[in-house]
Design a protein around this nucleic acid. Structure first.
Length: 848
RNA sequence: GGGCGAGUGGCGGAAUUGGUAGACGCGUUGGUCUUAGGAACCAAUAGUGCAAGCUGUGAAGGUUCGAGUCCUUUCUCGCCUACCA
């Protein structure tokens, strides 16, 4: 017998799979389809462990579904536009296209070494003309439908990357990629009208039963629907301002009105452009606006104007109008009415500026003299001190009733407000999909005629420019359409646009006329299982959902509203972090453990500080390169390990020891395989039938099938170990070769989604080709003749008794009275009650 | 501040509808074989006790014949989010 040589075996099967094209998929109306999609990678250069985990999970699922009989679509592509390519190209004097394509081919080879069941014929790359030309067409279609518009807007400007960031790309006031502090800048930008679908995006979440609740909640919060009322306040003062509109969810507290606050960007701020004090205040606000500490401390500051706002319910009440730092321009109307007694922010503000705090809601248990003192009261209760609103129940009655009254008096309107903002898609970068628009000499927008698509990215250009390189390419920028001169739009699309429809492209990857074919998507869509990191819970997933709805808008031929039927978010791969004496990060490859402490490799005197396990990242150097690991241990061993240690939705700790254990396990499994093979071919078929083995096989079929269906992939690996432990013992007993063969083939099939190269080799070694169907448990064999009855006396386990499965309560009780384990608990005692759960347990309650 | 989730051996983690807590792996300990072993194999491994037993799923209560699982209160940790009116 040979050692199991994974190098030869894995290479052999990967080639066979490739040559026989067994993973390529075609429409087959006689079979139910299953579309399994993992989030496609950004071609950064090399795959990382996160990819290994993500794609292994998807591969196990795809292989399983295919064995169960589904027609599986399992494609892969590249999210290939984006800034890293441009940055790398600039630094190394390369073309972003070359850099990207080189990375793609490296990573493709790496992925192939994992033995993934991917239909590579459908490979797509978002930076190819073949892909983005369709995207440009979609953009024009959305433009025609009124879902694309251009407006001047304050944008988040990343001074390092010299580009605009979406709100979602600003984290703690810093650019998500560069980490630079984001500035505010006014620019003309292209927007997609995602807000038009706010309600639908929210309500359709309920349809997504196979999505993690966590993700749905995050999207719900992001969309941020709130129900309330817009109120128009009349103003008095020395400015030409007659009224200010506010949005509120608490119109019932209007009698507690004591100030009105507007954002520093509110339109009335234009009257303060010459006011130095105000400009100083505005600067102050922008400084503290977004930093974490500022929000944590939450200091409220304001700038008092000479304007007074009139309470629309009580014209005698006039309150000051402030600019305030806690009012956001891009929510509601950028103005709020302040009711200090029942809003903590307003309360803090009122305390600071010594404004009235008038209590208008009392908790149920308090009397009418109740006064808000140390903090705002925001709970339920009864309206007081509010004339005709008095005695209404807060919040059930009071809010609706007060809206009605405001509507009657024509001072307010019922309003639903969303937090979700339109999606700014303009990026001032070269390496992206060009926006197919142009401007005439007056700046008027004209879409590029569809027949002139694609708008190709120019090649071999100078990237060493400040801002967008495309701005400097005159012969690309200046065009003629129908004899008229135009200047192209030089912004490119946010790369999230590319990933918002790629799942459709996989259905018709080679179609030249359109992004997808109707007959293809009608068969394959929606994605049955989408798998990826939870970090895309909001951005990518929300944009993709929007894109489906936008394509279907005013289009009866497009019947889908949700792209991803099932979603699974896998956890991250973590590793301990190491630092040397000088607090420099060390790579795990440079660290060794001598049994008691960690040190630098080959340096006995050195000390290494071990830090907490954190998600693998280059900056902390705690990365393990998958390619090396695959080279050393083989793909199946890596797959086995990455699945084994934690539930796939949770973070997993990378462990070298665990990795080695998985590798050794396959070696042991191979030794066992050879024993089994020997027995299959050499033992007499007349040996007594082995009931144990058949029973076990049927049990394990059930277990593994259930665990696969429920994503308990870590438990599947435990099940595989269980099988090994069982067979390794059972093989020593006499077994009929026929029975052994039948059961072993089933077992190998159960293993095959997780360790496909190994099982393929085993099948071949026994003279079989790979299985084509998943085994079914024989339920008859799952019924045990003998049951381990748990015997409890007064609820305490006292014995386990092997008994016939059909034994009744009385016979069992009789046996227990004479059984030496249990008789002493029953002797001389009265049995008050017995609880008998058939085939499981008996609980006898006795007097002590 | 708000939302979501999780607390089980030395560690990662198992545990249909409430019904044998600790599957499986790592680590550790002892042994076998070895010149040696950081290899392989065998055995043990929740705590405590010589044992029968007792105690054990963050803590405290509750429901139940029976609770890791259900309910109430509470503590700790993680993740997300953030002045959203």
């Amino acid at each position: 017998m040979n050692r199991y040589n994974f190098k030869l075996v894995e290479k052999k099967w990967q080639q066979k799979w490739q040559n026989s094209n067994i993973f390529s998929s075609e429409i087959d109306r006689d079979r139910e389809k299953f579309y399994c999609l993992e989030m496609f990678p950004y071609p950064s250069g090399r795959i990382h462990m996160g990819h290994v985990r993500n794609y292994t999970i998807g591969d196990v699922l795809s292989r399983y579904k295919s064995l169960v009989g589904f027609n599986v679509l399992h494609p892969m592509g590249w999210d290939a536009f984006g800034m890293p390519a441009e940055n790398a190209a600039r630094e190394n004097n390369l073309d972003p296209k070359d850099w990207t394509n080189k990375n793609i081919s490296t990573m493709k080879e790496q992925l192939k070494k994992l033995g993934l069941s991917i239909d590579w014929d459908r490979e797509i790359s978002t930076c190819s003309e073949e892909y983005y030309k369709h995207q440009q067409l979609f953009f024009l279609e959305l433009y025609e439908k009124g879902l694309v518009y251009r407006k001047e807007n304050y944008v988040n400007w990343d001074p390092v990357d010299q580009t605009v960031l979406a709100n979602e790309q600003v984290i703690d006031g810093k650019g998500w990629r560069s980490g630079a502090i984001v500035e505010r800048k006014k620019l003309n930008q292209w927007f997609l009208k995602i807000s038009q679908f706010s309600e639908e995006l929210l309500s359709d979440l309920d349809k997504l039963e196979a999505w993690p609740n966590k993700v749905k909640v995050m999207q719900k919060n992001w969309i941020g629907k709130s129900f309330g009322c817009e109120i128009t306040f009349q103003t008095e003062g020395d400015l030409p301002v007659k009224e200010i509109k506010c949005f509120t969810t608490r119109p019932d507290t209007l009698f507690g009105f004591s100030f009105l606050a507007v954002s520093v960007d509110h339109e009335i701020s234009k009257y303060f452009s010459e006011n130095h004090e105000f400009q100083k205040f505005k600067k102050e606000c922008s400084k503290t606006g977004t930093t974490e500490e500022a929000i944590a401390i939450g200091e409220k500051i304001g700038f008092k104007t000479n304007l007074m706002a009139i309470n629309p319910l009580d014209h005698t009440q006039k309150v000051p109008v402030f600019f305030a730092n806690f009012v956001l321009m891009d929510y509601g109307f950028g103005a709020v009415f302040g009711c200090p007694a029942h809003d903590q922010r307003d309360f803090d503000f009122a305390k600071k500026y010594k404004l009235d705090i008038k209590t208008v809601v009392k908790p149920l248990e308090e009397n009418d003299e109740f006064q808000v003192r140390d903090e705002a009261y925001t709970g339920p209760g009864i309206v007081i001190n509010s004339e005709f609103l008095n005695n209404l129940k807060v919040p059930e009655e009071s809010i609706l009733r007060s809206i009605d009254i405001l509507e009657e008096k024509k001072i307010g309107k019922k309003k639903i407000n969303f937090r979700l903002k339109d999606w700014g898609v303009s990026r001032q970068r070269y390496w992206g999909c060009p926006i197919p628009m142009a401007y005439d000499e007056n700046g008027k927008v004209i879409p590029i005629p569809k027949m002139n698509l694609p708008v190709k990215l120019p090649e071999n250009i100078n990237l060493n420019t400040k801002g967008n390189p495309l701005d400097f390419i005159d012969d690309w920028k200046n065009i003629e359409i129908n004899g008229k001169k135009y200047v192209r739009e030089t912004d490119t699309l946010d790369t999230f646009v590319c990933s918002s429809w790629y799942y459709l492209r996989f259905c018709s990857p080679h179609d030249k006329d359109y992004g997808f074919k109707k007959k293809d998507i009608d068969y394959w869509m929606p994605v049955d299982q989408y798998i990826g990191g939870v970090e895309h819970a909001i951005l990518h997933l929300l944009y993709s959902r929007f894109f489906m709805k936008a394509l279907g808008y005013k289009n009866e031929n497009f019947k889908f509203s949700e792209p991803f039927k099932g979603l699974f978010t896998q956890g991250m791969v973590c590793h301990e972090t190491y630092k040397d004496e000088n607090n420099n990060w060390l790579s795990p490859e440079d660290v060794e453990y001598d049994g008691s402490k960690f040190r630098k490799k080959g340096d006995l005197e050195s000390k290494v500080k071990v830090g907490p396990s954190e998600s693998m990242s280059k900056s902390k150097k705690n990365v393990i390169d998958p390619e090396n690991i695959i080279k050393n241990y083989g793909a199946d061993a890596v797959r086995l390990f990455i699945l084994s240690d934690s539930p796939p939705e949770k973070d997993v700790q990378w462990s070298e020891q665990g990795m080695i254990a998985s590798y050794k396990f396959l070696q042991k499994l191979w030794i066992l395989h050879n024993k089994i093979k020997d027995k299959i071919f050499n033992s007499n078929d007349n040996e007594k039938e082995n009931n144990n083995l058949e029973k076990f096989t049927n049990q394990i079929i059930n277990k593994i099938t259930n665990n696969l269906e429920n994503f308990n992939y870590n438990v599947i690996i435990a099940n595989i170990y269980e099988v090994y432990n069982f067979l390794n013992k059972e093989i020593e007993s006499k077994i009929s070769g026929k029975v052994l063969r039948e059961n072993y083939l089933k077992i190998l099939t159960l293993f095959s989604p997780a360790i496909p190269h190994y099982t393929s080799e085993c099948f071949e070694d026994l003279g079989y080709i790979n299985p084509i169907s998943w085994p079914k448990a024989n339920t008859d064999l799952l019924i045990e003749d003998e049951i381990d009855y748990v015997v409890q006396i007064n609820g305490k386990k006292r014995a386990i008794l092997k008994e016939n499965r059909n034994i009744d309560e009385e016979s069992l009780l009789l046996k227990l009275k004479s059984n030496k384990m249990t008789e002493r608990y029953l002797k001389n005692r009265t049995i008050k009650k017995t609880i008998f759960v058939k085939n499981r347990l008996i609980n006898i309650l006795v007097n002590e």
